[in-house]
Amino acid sequence: MQANKTLDTRGLACPMPIIKTKKTIDELNEGEILLVIADDPGAKEDFPAWCEQTGNELLKMEEKDEDIYIYIKKGGKNE
């Protein structure tokens, strides 16, 4: 999957991965895809919840070793 932007949050603990994701997605255009790489164990639950609440679409979440790759499409449900 091709992402428009990649955000590496590895090494950061909650809540920073989500805060950085919010700030980054705010800069994207509707429909663009953000890839977030995280290694915070809470991310697996936090990101789906965040997407659902903020109206962004979680396209895919995959684990690679200790890391989680999260593909988020900037939605427009809250606009």
């Binding site: 909650c14 809540p15 989500i18 805060i19 994701t21 919010k22 965040w50 609440q53 903020t54 809250n78």
Partner: peptide, 10 residues
């Protein structure tokens, strides 16, 4: 932590 997360949740 809750306040920053809350804002991230819009």
């Amino acid at each position: 932590i809750l306040a920053t997360s809350g804002i991230a949740l819009d």
